[in-house]
Amino acid sequence: MALAKYTETRYRIWHYSYLVICASVFFFLIAPLFVIVPLSFNAEQYIHFSSGMMALDPDAFSLRWYEDMIYGTKNPWGIAVKNSFYFAFFATVGATTLGTIAALGLSSRYMPYKSLIMSILISPMIIPLIISGSAIFFSLAKVGLASSFIGVVIAHIILGTPFVVITVTATLSGFDDSITRAASSLGSTPTNTFFKITLPLITPGIISGALFAFVTSFDEIVVILFVAGGDRSLTTIPLQMWTGLREQLSPTIMAVATCLIVLSTLILIVTELLRRRSERIRGISAQ
């Protein structure tokens, strides 16, 4: 990106203003997230940068909102965290299994009606959540599964599968068929080929799809708003935040939000490692 020495002044100006624009957009993207972090350590009741905080006075900072989050009696964050992880776990397992198997079929050259089937499978991602939420709620209510654990898990599996299908088919589209053919020609059974050759190669894709499914469920709010139907025992972190934000912006929510930012940072690191691993494997397999 370095400019050549002979660059004209007006292009120089243009180039630097372009960099300034880019920097402002990056700032716009990332800064709002980091406003929350210091505010969660606020010793005061109000959500603003107090003069003590600006002066970096240690007394202006405290962990009281984190204590409130964990031990607070009014805030059922404990059950929300437990539910969120339970739902996300089962939804991830369900969505990843169904999605991966379907992606294997969809990537076959012989798959009929591929485009139509793909459109149907992707639709939960495209159709507005408010429509999905109410439709799933009505159908679950009909079979007596509304406001139930299984009902929420089914709803989250539906929402998670498109991401798994997309990421795994994307991984499989770069898959070199000659490898599996080589395995077969050397006498490997189809099952053996799948577990020894195909699966290890597409594992990064599956894990990244599973992460998407996990985050989709973990972060899901609109559908569970309908499906949980006010049942307090089914509350999740997003649901609890939604309720809290509707009432009042409390510092405890800032503490929860900070924890969620830490979680998303972890997910980001995992996806980055996966991407590198995937590139490395591809690099070898392409030779």
């Binding site: 079929g105 969809l106 089937i117 149907i120 999905s132 109410s134 439709a135 159908s139 539906i158 299908v165």
Partner: peptide, 23 residues
């Protein structure tokens, strides 16, 4: 290939597409 896709396709149609149409 169809057999592989079928479980998810049926799942989505029964628990999602059909309820939407019904709604």
């Amino acid at each position: 290939a169809l057999v592989l896709v079928l479980p998810l396709l049926l799942f989505i149609i029964i628990t999602y597409i059909f309820p939407i149409i019904q709604m």
